[in-house]
Design a protein around this nucleic acid. Structure first.
Lengths: 196, 196
DNA sequence: TATGATATTGGACACTGTGTCCAGTATCAG
DNA sequence: CTGATACTGGACACAGTGTCCAATATCATA
């Protein structure tokens, strides 16, 4: 057996488990799911589960990591949008979330926000890079604070957009988000009040 | 027995359970705690727990509700700050969080954000009201989106501020937050790029 | 202080889910 | 075909939940 390749049976089992996880997460949210549920849905023996993943969280982490990696493969076109006004990350992510709406609705968690740390970290890195680009890196905690600010706002807006049956297109919600992020609520609403 | 009053024993038991919950949450985070842990820490029989609360979540909800209510009692001074620039909610909340830092660190959840829905809802109402005030209520989903945007940003900045051993005072972090919220990252960093 | 009402207690119970282990069986690659 | 590897179901010990009950401690008040 070639060292790098994977036994068909292994690939089949893991794929089944990961897809079962997605289906179930969509229905009841992540925390409510049990390992037994996943195995039943995947039609895989429970003892088999534990030969692949030590627990439920590891299955989720592995699943998400693979998913993110598959997104990064055609990495070129993300840079090509760099000089669009504002962030380059938000548009593609809104688009991607829209395309696989059910899966992301599941990822965000229904009422309860269960956004896994892998995704939050990935987005955070994007934001930090882009913010560092548009400023002169003045040191201080400003960059970190702004990053947190934007990431928190982004996930919350995304969550609302996925939960609500809104007519807003990915491009529209992205435009609103970027306007809020760059120009603040004063630019969106009336009577600007400068804060210094 | 007068209908409205509460038996000393009941008050004592509930108080013990609530304080035990806070102590334990500070240590390991909310989800890791078991009902048994709480009872051991509170020195209360486990069966007694269930005569007061149906489960762990209800204890948390009740505890938080009472805490919020006690904050709203001297409600006047919150309105008095209304005409400060920007939000009136953020400053007091930063101050309060700073005063009872440990407790809020616990509430936010260590790495894992476990912010209970009661608090999020309470803050959301504040933000929605204040945003509705500074704009002409132009209908559309704009108000809701902006509310989500601000609430998400606020919790994330608060989380960072509580987790990190930063020297920033409540007033300082509040000032930065409000500037980001009202004027956007462009106002904080260099080379403003208008987004329309 | 005596007393009836009510709260608390520990222990037992059934239940669900976890994670480990193993021997038997099915499937793989060469 | 065959040796290697993966899958399987079932058993196990364990931890935590939520319910119930009879015995005991504490309460409010007459």
């Amino acid at each position: 057996m070639p060292a790098g390749s994977i036994d068909r049976r292994v690939a089949r089992t893991r794929s089944r488990l990961q897809q079962a996880l997605f289906r179930l997460t969509t229905e009841n949210g992540y925390t409510a799911i049990t390992v037994e549920d996943i195995c039943r849905e995947a039609d895989v023996g429970r003892s088999t589960f534990y030969t692949h993943y030590p627990d439920k969280d590891c299955l989720r982490k592995a699943t998400i990591d693979e998913h993110i990696k598959s997104l990064q493969a055609p990495g070129a076109e993300r840079h090509s949008q760099r000089n669009a006004k504002g962030f380059s990350f938000s548009g593609p992510v809104f688009e991607h979330a829209h395309a696989t709406r059910e899966m992301h609705r599941a990822l965000m968690g229904g009422k309860k926000r269960e956004m896994p740390e892998e995704i939050r970290g990935w987005i955070s890195r994007q934001v930090r890079n882009e913010l560092a680009n548009i400023q002169g890196d003045e040191g201080g905690g400003r960059l970190e604070i702004a990053t947190r600010f934007i990431v928190g706002a982004f996930f919350e807006v995304m969550h609302w957009w996925l939960e609500t049956d809104t007519k807003l297109s990915p491009a529209e919600i992205d435009q609103i988000f970027r306007q809020l992020a760059f120009n603040g609520v004063n630019a969106v609403f009336a009577e600007p009040t400068r804060i210094e």
